[in-house]
Amino acid sequence: MTAWKARQALIGPTGSEQLIAYSLSVEAVFGNLRALLGQISGLLILIQSRLQRDAADLPDLAIARERWAETIEQLADLNVPDSRAEDRPRLKAAAAHIDAALRAIAEMRRTRADDNVSEAARHLNNAYRLMQRVCDHRIGLTMIDTSVSCCSCGKTLK
């Protein structure tokens, strides 16, 4: 089954071609933001558990920063249908919070680490809430990927 047909089946007969095309392109943006959110959150746990405050040097952060920049470009290119008009501002706002979280971690060497952890976590919580408001499993936008642990075959086949 092609990705297009799989998504068409999931959205149902009322889905326009524009919505199907959008769902396939926004999924990558959403997936990147979701992964960034999880990655940075995990780093914050490790920073605290290892008492390792110079997180700004971690290679993972450089990878996250690159991915964030790539995601911003993808976000700008989205062709958003009217029915999903609120998605772009929400995703942009979520991306801004993730950027702020990355900057808070980068600041850790210069200020009190606990404050930076709190600041980063606050931004990530805001980003998470914004992304939750965009979620719609029919167009592949979910905070948990259960596509291989369920029986709705073809949901994300590509």
């Binding site: 992964a35 959110l37 999880g38 959150s41 995990g42 605290q48 905070m143 948990i144 990927d145 642990s149």
Partner: peptide
């Protein structure tokens, strides 16, 4: 990443 909610990791923070 199957089965992981980044929000759960965030709660771990």
């Amino acid at each position: 990443l199957t089965g992981i909610d980044p929000g759960d990791i965030l709660n771990g923070v």
